[in-house]
Structure formats: C-alpha cells, structure tokens
C-alpha cells in the first residue's frame, strides 16, 4: 500500500517534470513554429539565475518563481529582437540559428560560471509515507506544474491577450489587418516561452548538479513531448507528458533506468507511427 502511494507520487512527479521541461518549448515551437534548439540552454540559464540569486541571499522560492523566469525571459527578449524575428516562417533557418545560440550560451555560461558542477540543496525536507521516505520537493514540482497548466489555460482561453496571441499565431496578416502588431505579439509570446523555460530550469535546479552543458539532457525529451502532443498546446502537453512520464517510471521501477529511457523512446516512436499528427491530432481535436 505504502509502495503504491510512493510510486504514484513518483509517476506524478515524472509527468510534472516533463510538463515543466516542455512547456516553454510548446509555446516557442508548438505555437510559434520556431525550432528552438537552444531550449535546453534557456533552462540551464534559469538554473544558474536561481543559484546565483540564492547565493546572493535571495529567498529560494522568490529566486525560482520570479527571478529566474524574468531573467531568462529578458534574455529571450534580446534574442528575439536580434536573431529570431528575422526568421519567422523559416523553420530550418531557426533550427540553425538557435543551434548556434545554444553553443554561444554554453560558452558564455562557461566563461562566467566555469565548467564545474554547481548546485543548491532542496528547500523542502523529505517526509515519510508508511515505511518509505519521499522527497517533499516532488510535491512542489507537481504543484508548480498544475498551476502552470491552469495558468496557461486561463491566459490563452480567458484573457484578451491570449486570444490575440492565438489569433496572431494562426493568421498574422489578419491580426495585423485588425490593428494588432504581429511583431509585438510574437515578441511577447517568445518572452513568455523563454520565461517558462527559465522557470523549468529553476525548479529543477535543486535536484541536479548544474554545468553549462546541462541543457542537452532536456532537449530531446522536450521535443519528443511537444511533437507527440500534437497541435493542441495544453491538452497535447498534458496527454503526452502523462503518457511518457508513466511509461518511463513504470519501466524504470520494474526493470531498470536504462529500460525506462528506452521504453519512453519506443513509446514515442510507436505513437508517432500510429498518430503522425501527435495525440491531439486525433484525440481532443480542436481543444486548446
């Protein structure tokens, strides 16, 4: 019984961390069609922003939830103005440019922070379920992921800004004809996407040893989750993260971590063979 609870928490945690890892990319790649190969590096910078802020004496939750997303969002803003805005609609070119950016950011982070592993410890103590110990920080990640999904849904569905953003992504010339500047809208959306990446990096920072190349560990999973999710932003993110998170954890626990990773990839390949448009290309079609 205790073990079931622990496993359930671990599964929820795996799903939540996939949602976090992929949310920023879902906005930048899923909505804006920019193949952002620097996504992992935005996460890495979120991690460094958190660690630096904490070392300067900022409260860790403020650092994670406010400072890191803002810092990375602002970096994203600069990147958008300088590089990305020239490349909208040129899918392959964005890939090349953001790959260059990812190398640049790795180099920059190495120059500033050095190449040694850094980290901070988790702010929430572990606790006991029956005879088992689990990490209290897992719950924090799950809560952040839930609020993130609700928040994204509320903004995109409930606010005028969300409506305008969705409209501009679908048909930017129409949005322009109605008097909205697509340029501004794209800029703001990219800012939000990068801030989400920064948030993800920040939330995961206390759990990992951070090096400038840490981003590489997330990029593949993020792309797989977003692509398998399909065209709907939130439903896609939730369904594919849910599927892969559970598959990964079940196999990791039952067999071994290597098989867990393999199972995730196999599930992705099979899924894309059956549903080439992603999960929400067929199921939950037309949902947000």
């Amino acid at each position: 019984m205790d073990l079931t609870v622990v496993l359930l928490v671990e599964m929820l945690y795996a799903v939540a961390s996939l949602i976090l890892i992929s949310a920023g990319l879902a906005v930048v790649f899923g909505m804006m069609k920019v193949i952002n190969l620097a996504h992992g590096e935005f996460m890495m910078m979120g991690g460094y922003a958190t660690i630096t802020a904490v070392n300067w004496g900022v409260n860790i939750f403020v650092a994670i939830l406010i400072i890191a997303p803002l810092v990375v969002g602002l970096i994203g803003l600069v990147v958008e103005r300088v590089v990305i805005r020239h490349l909208y609609g040129r899918l392959v070119d964005t890939m090349l440019a953001t790959w260059g950016l990812s190398l640049f950011f790795i180099g920059l982070a190495t120059m500033i922070f050095g190449n040694t592993t850094t980290g901070i410890s988790t702010p929430i103590p572990g606790f006991t379920v029956g005879t088992y110990q689990i990490s209290g920080y897992n719950f924090f990640i799950i809560v952040v992921a839930v609020f993130l999904l609700i928040g994204m849904f509320a903004v995109l569905k409930g606010t005028r800004a969300g409506l305008i953003a969705r409209g501009a992504m679908q048909k930017s010339d129409m949005a322009a004809a109605l008097g909205y500047s697509p340029d501004r809208i794209y800029m703001a959306t990219f800012f939000c996407g990068c801030a989400l990446s920064g948030l993800a990096g920040a939330v995961l920072a206390p759990l990992v040893g951070l090096v400038p190349t840490s981003g590489g560990a997330y990029i593949a999973k993020a792309f797989i989750t977003v692509i398998a999710g399909g065209p709907s932003l939130i439903a896609g993110l939730f369904s594919s993260a849910g599927l892969f998170g559970i598959v990964n954890q079940v196999f990791t626990f039952a067999i071994s971590p290597v098989i867990g990773e393999v199972a995730l990839l196999v599930a992705a390949v099979v899924l894309l063979r059956l549903l080439p448009q992603g999960i929400t290309g067929k199921i939950f079609k037309g949902k947000l």
Binding site: L3, E10, Y132, V208, G216, T252, P257, G260, E261
Partner: peptide, 20 residues
C-alpha cells in the same frame, strides 16, 4: 544492481525501488 547512462539525472523511482 542498477546501471545508469551518464545523462540520467532523475533518480526518484530508483530511490523508491531501493526502499522497497
């Protein structure tokens, strides 16, 4: 005995397994 590829950074379910 469990082996981990060098890029695995999530050990949550392993920690649960060890406890079981």
């Amino acid at each position: 005995v469990d082996f981990f590829p060098l890029d695995v950074s999530d050990f949550g379910s392993t920690i649960a397994k060890i406890q079981s």
